[in-house]
Computed example of a mutant assay.
Amino acid sequence: MEEAAAALTAATGRTVTAVFLSYDEARAQGRALVREDEWLNDIGHRAPIGELAAYGVRLTPFREWAEENRNAILIG
């Protein structure tokens, strides 16, 4: 997450920091998607990333995506 925060900071010129919460801390703050996060961490979506090139799918590195979309990224 620190790498994503750094990419967003570089792309937008706004400081972004990664904040880590336990599931209990997130629930205590009223975060709505805690159960979804638990599921993603425990089970998750499995995608054959290595096989995507055979289908002509070009993966965009996050840093590149952030640069290309910097004007659409809202940081509160």
Rank of each mutant, 00 (worst) to 15 (best):
M1H: 09
M1K: 00
M1D: 11
M1T: 10
E2S: 00
E2C: 00
E3A: 07
E3N: 01
E3H: 05
A4C: 07
A4H: 05
A5Q: 00
A5G: 02
A7H: 06
A7E: 11
A7V: 02
L8K: 00
T9W: 01
A10H: 07
A10Y: 03
A11E: 01
A11Y: 02
A11S: 04
T12W: 07
T12I: 02
G13H: 07
G13K: 03
G13L: 08
G13M: 02
R14I: 13
R14F: 10
T15D: 10
T15V: 13
V16A: 14
V16T: 11
T17C: 01
A18E: 06
A18D: 09
V19E: 14
V19A: 05
V19F: 00
F20E: 04
F20Q: 02
L21A: 09
S22K: 06
Y23D: 13
E25T: 01
A26Y: 01
A26D: 08
A26R: 01
R27F: 11
Q29W: 02
R31I: 06
R31M: 03
R31P: 00
A32D: 08
A32G: 08
A32F: 10
L33S: 04
L33N: 13
V34N: 05
V34W: 02
V34Q: 01
R35S: 15
R35I: 06
E36S: 11
E36N: 11
E36L: 09
E36M: 05
D37S: 11
D37Y: 05
E38F: 06
E38W: 04
W39M: 12
W39V: 14
L40F: 11
N41A: 13
N41Y: 11
D42Y: 02
I43L: 02
G44C: 03
G44F: 04
H45D: 12
H45G: 04
A47Q: 06
A47V: 15
A47G: 08
P48E: 14
P48V: 07
I49C: 06
G50E: 09
G50N: 09
G50T: 14
E51D: 15
E51Q: 15
E51G: 06
E51V: 10
A53W: 12
A53T: 12
A53Y: 03
A54V: 14
Y55K: 14
Y55R: 09
Y55T: 12
G56N: 09
V57Y: 05
V57F: 08
R58N: 15
L59S: 09
T60A: 07
T60F: 03
T60D: 10
P61K: 08
P61F: 04
P61I: 08
R63N: 06
R63S: 13
E64V: 15
W65D: 05
W65P: 00
A66K: 02
A66R: 00
A66S: 12
E67D: 11
E67T: 11
E68S: 11
E68H: 10
E68K: 10
E68A: 14
N69Q: 06
N69S: 11
N69A: 08
R70T: 08
N71G: 13
N71K: 07
N71S: 14
A72L: 12
A72G: 15
A72M: 07
A72W: 09
I73Q: 07
L74E: 12
L74H: 13
I75V: 15
I75H: 02
G76F: 15
